[in-house]
Design a protein around this nucleic acid. Structure first.
Lengths: 121, 121
DNA sequence: TTCACTGCAAAACGTTTGCAAACAG
DNA sequence: CTGTTTGCAAACGTTTTGCAGTGAA
């Protein structure tokens, strides 16, 4: 609706990476200098609630935001620091099966070496 | 070594729950009133590094600490708020198999209803 | 006697929020 | 015109840290 929101959204859609709120803020601020951090967070929340983006919560460091909204997991590369998609397949069902517990949702934070860094090495 | 450290350790060992740093602090402070929060965090880190306790990192809210050190996963009960153990089995191998990626470690934060609450319902 | 550990308080970090002003519909 | 959204700055919850003093070995 507002220019701020559109700018923030465009930054996310326009980046192949999984950006943190601050990275989004800095990039959007270049295009819209008066932009405030609070506005970024408020809009990220709105977009998340609207199902337009995915919020990747991390236990250490800043959360990330993903333009791909279909449920999938992520891995943080311990070499380059990027968050990459993890092509997992029905882990929720698997965990439910293994544990027999009433699990509603789950979130994985994996760490490893991304394919790009593997190729470099 | 120090009394503070022993007190903190005893609190963790003596509780069936997965306590947060603040809960540990409050309980240990009852037995050792001059205890400071910084000391709790510093000792938790030492114990974690020594492999004496497990550090459960959470993306929302305070981290928890677990006296069971063997690798396992956890679930947060959305009803009572407790963190309970999740008897998963070789998820790391499974995720590696599914994704073919160089995964070094992972951490799951699941949410659901714990057995105790299931029985109450 | 030495060096690790403590208590304290301040700072760090990422995120949220109250408010009055600005703006979109 | 009305109600949502903004910018600002202050506050939040959790964790870390600098420092001078304390205490365990």
């Amino acid at each position: 609706m507002t220019n701020q929101r559109k700018t923030i959204y465009d930054v996310i859609i326009g980046s192949p990476e999984h950006l943190s709120a601050e990275e989004i803020y800095l990039r959007a601020k270049k295009r819209y200098p008066s932009l405030a951090m609070g506005t970024v967070y408020r809009n990220l929340k709105l977009m998340e609630d609207a199902g337009e983006i995915l919020h990747i919560r991390t236990p250490d460091g800043a959360d990330r935001y993903d333009k791909t909204t279909s449920k999938h997991d992520h891995m943080e590369c311990i070499q380059c620091g990027q968050f990459v998609d993890l092509p997992t397949h029905d882990l929720l069902g698997l965990i439910r099966e293994q544990t027999g517990m009433e699990i509603q949702s789950y979130q994985i934070n994996a760490k490893g070496i991304c394919s790009e860094c593997m190729n470099k090495n």
